[in-house]
């Protein structure tokens, strides 16, 4: 293949077993259910979806923070689902994570210096003075200063903590960063600072991002390609501009239309979905979205749809596009 893929996820599954009491059957929660996608070097790939759709679990599984139930994850051509904990440790300098909650993701007992020193120490990068220099540099890059070195996380505001978290993620100059809702816990006026910082760092270090978010306006602004997830499955993939201009899957359409307007005079045709996301422990048969889909047909509740390809890598998993027109008519007539 001509394309240079940094990360390739194939048929990834992550199931959790939940026991509901001693005598009840264990239920299986399909948090991630057969997900495949690839991320090109240097791009920002977005996973978008609502809570419980499996986007965060996908991120954590790629990082090896939880084990995959099935499937392969290739990082620079190497399957990282099969390697040992210690081999994985060595690889970790090349991919890092930015967490959602800047209050929970920093060890409260460690100073900024200790937090930033740890990755350098673990991966034996640089020596003594050079390490200190590196830490000063990275602090400056993320917009903090030397005077913050010996402070503890609780002394900082949310935005500043997120900068510390980002500094920790980039200090080893990784190739790949998974950012799990990196700005959704921050104040509005601080969000744009952090987004700018991430864009800057990407340019500076040639980073590849997997950007996990539910915030469509941020995704539209900063990502190159988007995968829309619903109930553990990817329902649509497209380049960002294409996806926002020409969403194919009814769920994507509803999601985009649900974003609040930016100006009170802006009129928007809104698709209001009925009901709530079904439980991943008991997903609907057939297409997982059919219970809320305004265009649901008979076939949708019976058979899971296949991927349909459009131009430029745009694909959607929906029966509206799988069947030829006559078949759809048949379905409608029979119903």
């Amino acid at each position: 293949m001509a394309e240079d893929y940094l990360v390739k996820v194939q048929n990834l599954k992550k199931y959790y077993e939940v026991s509901k009491g001693m005598f009840k059957q264990k239920t299986i929660i399909r948090a991630v259910d057969d997900v495949s996608f690839s991320i090109k070097r240097g791009e920002t790939y977005a996973l978008v979806g609502e809570s419980g759709c499996g986007k965060s679990t996908t991120g954590k599984t790629i990082l090896g923070l939880t084990d995959a139930t099935a499937g392969e994850i290739y990082f620079q051509g190497k399957d990282i689902t099969k390697i040992s904990y210690s081999d994985m440790r060595k690889l970790r300098k090349d991919f890092q994570m930015i967490f959602q909650d800047p209050y929970a993701s920093l060890n409260p007992k460690k100073t900024v210096r200790e937090i930033l020193m740890e990755p350098l120490r673990i991966h034996k990068k640089f020596e003594g003075k050079e390490r200190e220099k590196k830490i000063h540099e990275i602090l400056e890059i993320v917009g903090l200063s030397k005077s913050h070195l010996h402070r503890y996380p609780h002394e900082f505001s949310g935005g500043q903590r997120q900068r510390i978290g980002i500094a920790r993620a980039v200090i080893l100059q990784p190739d790949f960063i998974i950012a799990d809702e990196p700005v959704s816990a921050l104040d509005v006026s601080v969000q744009s600072q952090v987004i700018n910082l991430m864009l800057d760092l990407q340019k500076e270090f040639g980073l590849t991002y997997l950007f996990i978010s539910h915030d469509l306006s941020v995704i539209e602004h900063m990502t190159d390609r988007v995968a829309v997830m619903y109930l553990g499955k990817i329902v649509e993939v497209a380049e960002t501009e294409e996806l926002f201009e020409n969403p194919k899957h009814p769920y994507t359409q509803a999601l985009i239309s649900a974003v609040p307007v930016a100006h009170p005079r802006e009129e928007r045709k809104r698709i209001i979905l009925k009901g709530d996301v079904p439980s991943p422990a008991n997903p609907p048969k057939g297409c997982p979205f059919h219970t809320r889909c305004p265009f649901a047909m008979d076939i949708c509740s019976e058979k899971a749809p296949e991927e349909v390809f459009f131009t430029d890598g745009h694909k959607a998993t929906c029966h509206l596009y799988t069947n030829s027109k006559e078949e759809i008519k048949d379905v409608i007539r029979n119903s």
């Binding site: 890092q96 929970a104 740890e118």
Partner: peptide, 17 residues
């Protein structure tokens, strides 16, 4: 289960550490 422990794992810190 805290994020900062996950962050340490993601950094490549050994279990013992």
């Amino acid at each position: 289960e805290k994020d900062f422990i996950q962050a340490a794992v993601a950094t490549g810190v050994s279990r013992f550490e």
